[in-house]
Design a binder for these strands. Structure first.
Lengths: 197, 197, 197, 197
DNA sequence: TCATAAGCGAGACGGTACGTCGTGTCTTACG
DNA sequence: CGTAAGACACGACGTACCGTCTCGCTTATGA
């Protein structure tokens, strides 16, 4: 009983996914500027009007690709101790970034300045979800007595360190974001901070 | 006796500053994409050819605005203890950002993805100089016996935390980068990390 | 007992008239190009599909507006002499043009080049009917001995002069097509031609 | 001494001709609607901006092609008697139309309704010049005593008959505009009219 | 003193992407 | 089957921007 509340031909959901797939791939392959809407339409097998009917502009389309490529599909890890949990969490993120390519994230970041009102969705979609996961891990560790329960502001700050470093690294393409990098981050920064006081 | 090695009319230095001023302002006001070269030329009271004679392209011009707005003009602070030094350092940076406006930095960050070859100059110009200052402070503190002398990789990581947080905040326009933010960063993250082990 | 030979809901005749009215008006108001099918549908309170079920395309719809605004509804005049008949005929045409607006005719003419297959219908519908009326008048005058019976080609040529002048005047919007214009046409061109030889 | 009154790089006249040539050819080949500005630009070896810098839109460009294809380059004929002059004049026109193709004229006519303010240039450029030539011939014949000197309005009307018939024939693509057609026009219509009274 | 070489303003130019619009077809659900 | 509503492919439109170029003029130096 597929009831349609609105009259007229309904939008084809398959087109949404085709467009988002094409846009995300092109974004990762050629970058934000070189990704033309015509190219997206052509690769998705779709007309430009169909894209613009869904998103007001290029930046919005790019933003929508994050939602599509759900970075946080997996479960929050539970290895028994905080260090293992944090390392596992970073490892999840690193693998997902490698799958959908760092370039995609870089494209998203580049699109941000164009449309400042896109900042909030990114914040909630990426930073917010990440932060919630870190909170979960730390709460659990506090329950186990591993660390003192930190106050909210400090924990929030702590949670943003990882993503921020990743974002800047991605933008500057400095050194590879390998396991050693995250290990150092956990051992030299996050754990000392949580254990102090 | 204005000696010129090359024949012909010498370049007018006043134009350089006018262009850099106009470009920097526009960058801060409307962002990287909406900053057109024609607009820069018009605001600077200069022709486009005069700009392109000095810089190969838009990204390079944007980069030049960083050097012009010298973020690290002041001395490395020396308050006697590490906490004071760090807070003073962050305070310097915060004030300079407020002067030349956060938006300018945001424009620079957005420009990064368009011109990947700008990543290195930015790294060296901004992150590198900042990192050197942090190194100086920490070395000095280690000399005083305040903290253990950390290994290079860990210190480098530590030095990048501040700028990365700032960059992401600027891009996402989340919460204000006030003194309390930096104080929390120093007390909850940096100092615990440096004091551990 | 509304007998319908075909099954299903019968077409609503009221829609035909509404569409033709809307199309004719829009054609006169904004011209052929600016008359969009969506606008016709909207003004007629009808969906686009309803239009395209009746006519294959825009040009055909425009053509249909001619038939709807029947230019030759009235009787062939009979005043007793050729000059009076011709003037009366032109006067009929002029009044009908003023009713349904010259702009409508202009729209039709403009549509001709887009759809070359419309040329024949227009020729038969407009020029042909007009020519037949002129033939009637002249035959009648020849029967009365007023003029010599001209050969077919010459008469056909003569019959086209009036409509052609009108068409070009409409396209170029030069001088008004008033009674004096047609009187001059009859007295200085048509009658001398018919009376010669 | 090529003095430039306006500053900046002067427009390249060669581009004007290339564009007009390409536009005129395309207009004749594919018609008004199928003539896309991109195609014109491509064939002229020119960028679209260069076209739009010169003409505000498509219709204006089409109109400009008439000026370029000067229909009235030749001398007014002088054969000694009016009939010969008129036939020669029509023959000139017919040959020029065949050279630059009837389709071109058809395209121009089709463009007229789009931009009503283009009607005046067409009137002056085409009808006006033609009318002046007819006036010349008839005045000359009147000087010779061949015909009575007709009043202005009647002569103007007479002069428009030819072009109007041609225009409508071109629009309707009825019968070929051959020499016999014009001969009949001269002998059965124009000369009787001029000789009467 | 004057020629040369470069700087400079103005703006034309090629290329390319943008976002909009119009036509004619289609796909829903409802009458 | 007719109809309303509107999605859809295709393709042209006119605009904007980038980076290059071509003018004529200006400004220094070197012969």
């Amino acid at each position: 009983m597929p009831t349609t509340l609105t009259p007229g031909r309904p939008r084809d959901a398959a087109r949404d996914t085709a467009i988002l797939q094409a846009a995300g791939d092109l974004l990762a392959e050629v970058g934000y500027d070189a990704m033309s809407m015509d190219a997206v339409a052509a690769r998705a097998g779709v007309s430009k009007a169909t894209i613009y009917r869904r998103w007001p502009g290029k930046a919005d389309l790019v933003l929508a690709t994050i939602r599509a490529r759900d970075f946080f599909a997996e479960e929050v890890p539970d290895t028994g101790d905080l260090r293992g949990d944090l390392l596992a969490l970073f490892d999840q993120a690193r693998r997902r970034l490698e799958e959908s390519s760092f370039d995609h994230l870089a494209g998203v970041l580049a699109a941000l300045r164009r449309a400042p009102d896109l900042a909030r969705p990114v914040r909630e979609q990426l930073l917010g979800l990440w932060s919630a996961r870190v909170h979960t891990l730390v709460e659990r560790a506090a329950d186990r007595g591993e660390v003192r329960r930190p106050d909210g502001a400090a924990l929030e700050l702590l949670a943003q360190i990882g993503p921020s470093l990743v974002a800047v690294q991605v933008l500057l393409e400095d050194e590879p974001l390998d396991a050693a990098f995250f290990e150092r981050l956990v051992d030299c920064v996050l754990l000392p901070s949580l254990r102090s006081r």
